[in-house]
């Protein structure tokens, strides 16, 4: 089946911009706030948000880290192969900071659970919020909800939501594939 486009490039840019302004509403100048993107795909969104926020606020000091959650996952030894890790790059602690956890797609919620566990190894944050570009609602296996959402998507398990980036795939867009085997 042909993939369905959920966000094209223009809608994608608009959504990022809207999410930035929603963040500014709550975090003002980001003095007490840090953005933490989850590896491997959430970091692209986190970097994009941080870059847009720096431009909008004309403040070059917004902190943005990359957090890898591989060693905190709950499916270790439940897969055929070892879970492959990505680099963690957190050159700040989150002690008493307002953390905005960022991922591209919220699906079962298990990644976010692992992310929360990994996050406290870098300090005790004052608060943690969750921002996602796509929320595949009704598919949660763990009680996790996002505070900021780019787009809600209703999907069935056989469908896959792909977030593509100009940096890695050549074009900003979000598409939904339906896999044939069911």
């Amino acid at each position: 089946m042909k993939p369905i486009t959920i966000l094209n490039s223009e809608q994608f840019a608009l959504t990022i911009k809207r999410l930035c302004f929603q963040l500014i509403e709550n975090h003002e100048n980001f003095e007490e706030s840090v953005i933490v993107g989850l590896q491997p795909r959430g970091v692209l969104l986190a970097d994009r948000l941080a870059q847009s926020l720096r431009e909008i606020l004309k403040s070059p000091t917004i902190s943005c880290g990359h957090l890898d959650i591989t060693f905190y996952r709950d499916d270790f030894r439940r897969k055929e192969k070892p879970l492959e890790a990505s680099p963690t790059n957190m050159n700040f602690t989150v002690e008493d900071k307002r953390v905005i956890l960022v991922d591209d797609v919220l699906f079962t919620g298990r990644t976010i659970r692992s992310g929360l566990e990994a996050l406290v190894d870098f300090g005790r944050p004052r608060s943690v919020e969750l921002l996602v570009l796509i929320d595949r609602r009704f598919k949660r296996q763990i009680p996790v909800q996002a505070d900021y959402v780019g787009r809600w998507v209703d999907s069935i398990a056989a469908q896959r939501v792909g977030v593509e980036w100009a940096e890695s795939e050549g074009k900003d867009r979000v598409i939904m594939h339906t896999t044939d085997e069911q």
């Binding site: 060693f71 905190y72 957190m90 190894d121």
Partner: peptide, 11 residues
């Protein structure tokens, strides 16, 4: 990991 403030993972 071993250079973090908390040098431990639950794997």
């Amino acid at each position: 990991v071993i250079n973090r403030p908390i040098k431990k993972v639950p794997s």
